[in-house]
Design a protein around this nucleic acid. Sequence first.
RNA 1: GCCGGAGUGGUGGAACUGGUAGACGCGCCGGACUCAAAAUCCGGUGGGGGCAACUCCGUGUCGGUUCGAUUCCGACCUCCGGCACCA
Length: 830
Amino acid sequence: MERPYNFEKIESKLQCKWEQEGVFRVSEDSERPRYYVLEMFPYPSGRIHMGHVRNYTIGDVVARYKRMQGFEVLHPMGWDAFGLPAENAAIKHGTHPAKWTYENIDYMRSQLKKLGFSYDWTREIATCHPSYYRWEQLFFLEMYEKGLVYRKLSKVNWCESCSTVLANEQVEDGECWRCGTKVVEKELYGWFFRITAYADELLKGCDKLSGWPDKVLTMQRNWIGRSDGARIIFPVADREGENLTVFTTRPDTLFGVTFVSIAPEHSMVMTLAHGTGQEQAVKDFLAKWTVIPSKERLESKEKEGVWTGAFAVHPLTSEKVPIYVANFVLMEYGTGAVMAVPAHDQRDFEFAQRYGLPIRVVVQPDNIQAEKMTEAWDGPGRLVDSGEFNGIDNEEAKAAIVERLKAKGLGEPTVAYRLRDWGISRQRYWGAPIPIIYCSRCGIVPVPRDQLPVELPLDAQLDASGRSPLPRFEPFYKTTCPKCGGEARRETDTMDTFVESSWYFARYTCPDETSMPLDRKRVEKWLPVNQYIGGVEHAILHLLYSRFFTKVLRDLEWLSVDEPFENLLTQGMVLKEGAKMSKSKGNVVDPDEMIRRYGADTVRLFILFAAPPEKDLEWSDHGIAGCHRFLQKLWRIVTANAEGLRTADTSQSALEQAVLFSTALKALRRKTHQTIAKVTDDIERRMQFNTAISAVMELINEVHGCLGSCSMNAAFLSVMREALDAVLILLSPMVPHITEELWCVMGHAESITKASWPQADATLLDANEVKIAVQVNGRLRGEVTVPKTASQEEVLAAAHKNEAVKRHVEGKVIRKVVYVAGRLLNVVVQ
RNA sequence: GCCGGAGUGGUGGAACUGGUAGACGCGCCGGACUCAAAAUCCGGUGGGGGCAACUCCGUGUCGGUUCGAUUCCGACCUCCGGCACCA
């Protein structure tokens, strides 16, 4: 008879059972087709939050669904375990980052286990372990040999509070992405990954990623920022052999050039000014504009500059135009020098107005006059005042002018990217050491491979300053040069933690491999990841780096795919009272607390039901209670009828017999198969779990209705059992514990995780009779029930008998009749 | 400024290919059971008008295409996200 739904007991019992039986362990040599589902691994910050619960619940639904569909599913979990918070916590609590990290991992693992996620825990990895990061050091060395890693002195984004360099991608609105401190500029030596070497492939690859959201692809394309244009050489007047090369996307406006601007950091600035009498003025200008960090410099939109005293020679007209240093020209983009066309570029226009430089219109849409312009014209037109090119459409003129320049050896087509190389050096302790040695005699010497890993010393002590102890920790930095054997010093910077997360998905395929980073055979079996799931906040950083790394590892012959993630789902945030959950706002809902109160199944169900995955989800205390009620109801329906259900006959013939004399049971069977079709489509094609759940709720409502109206006989039990078997299987990827328990209550001997996904019987999906909506002039007036096979004429005849329809049609002329088979009839009258 | 996305009841959301707007859930209202409460069960629930049958209005705003528009097109408003002196 009925027993209470003791979720706590059921969930812990089944979690133990699954673990003991190794239900989710992946088999390498299974005959089944493979499927790899992955969620972005967490940083072990201490406790999981609702965002994690959402991310991992979605992934678990996919994993369990695919397993029941007959796939061998790889569904691993691990820890992105290096990073700054560990250091901060260690300083604050007087502990060690490693201890803090590993303790957090232990606790968070137990939290994930309590949610019943179907991970293969035997493949767990932690990136802070030498068995992981040693391979990253190997990749670094291989990339170094290929010229994909280099060291340079550069202006870097520096966070004073974290005492470290930040990548461009880690600067948000001029502030540190992690702590919000204002980022300042600093000159430092650092190591760079040559991601720009892959700019074009990364860009073109976007077109092939049909399983990614357009939003993410757009962001990546913009970030890479390809511009097609030309390099044009402007010889410096009266200086033999000195040239200034500019980059432009508008070679068509070449004849409108009235001056040239260069960046304050440009190497030629002082040479140009030398001996012109402008030297002091230029020095003053540089003093003002090179100390101000460029981030701040960009905040002032005011165009400012100074003449260098030098002139450039126009490559086609040989006219002399002045060369200015200008605050708005960026050294990092293009060539750090631009040809200025005030009539057709707003920045040049503003600059020209301020310094009284000429404005020359060369692209004419109709009749614009230089003297009357209030802003630059950057639209299309025909060329004027452009010598032999007059009259040509400006788009066509681009190629023609570049062609002309090329013939003279003064220009060529080229491409510029917004993307910069990836600076990976961090002046931090808790990260993977960069495997490089500095020798006063031999210079930069890579650590020989047989000396890997360069282990991070766990006995180094952090002090309150927060600075890395490595540069002062002799046992680490003091070493001998592998080349000359003399005294040498190790690199004490560590790698950006984004390096670890750029290849972990590949390591999951062979985490036990001790002789090499990746076992090609296994990597090839599993990659690419079929479904990747995570927050949209990683749309650029992590996802672009991972794509880059995949291409690098492919070229280093460690794997053979071009792209790491076939399909990407970016899930929305979990909100409370319209805001992201945060300690400071005090609106955090703790997953542990919810699991204790309602159980893991209820938490999972609510988080899937409250919103479609890619949208933000508003947490609702009432909502989760409602989900719990639904599970209670399911529990009651099954347990209260358990005895009858266990013995019910669900053979094909019994089911066919059962519905012969009952339209209610016939309808229930139809609903069952419609629900199977709907839920399968919602999970497989649409990834809309909220509507999948509502479809099952409808089916349960119908079963519940029948319980109140049908007599409890063998026929009813057969049909009810068919319905409830379907309900349990369809819900099992979402609420695995209660469904497994009830599956057993219904008398199934084997675990529901071994059940195969049901298939809808197509012959049962449609009723013999259909309801047709009847409109008059597009307005709904009535409804008629006709046989499924009824023709338009028959439907129309039925409609004419409908009172409401009659009223609106009577005495009027029928102009037209539109019939949508099986759905709707529209009678147009006048 | 440029590029995306979104705007639907009191509320979270549904309507997938232009075809009955508001599925499912929450909340609320009424009823049954109970001494009472909780739980559960039954019924109602977009707005206006009407005793009622019924009828008019309604998917951010204004237009358009169509027999028919939440869906397509144009203009605009609001919110969110990304990029932003990138030549």
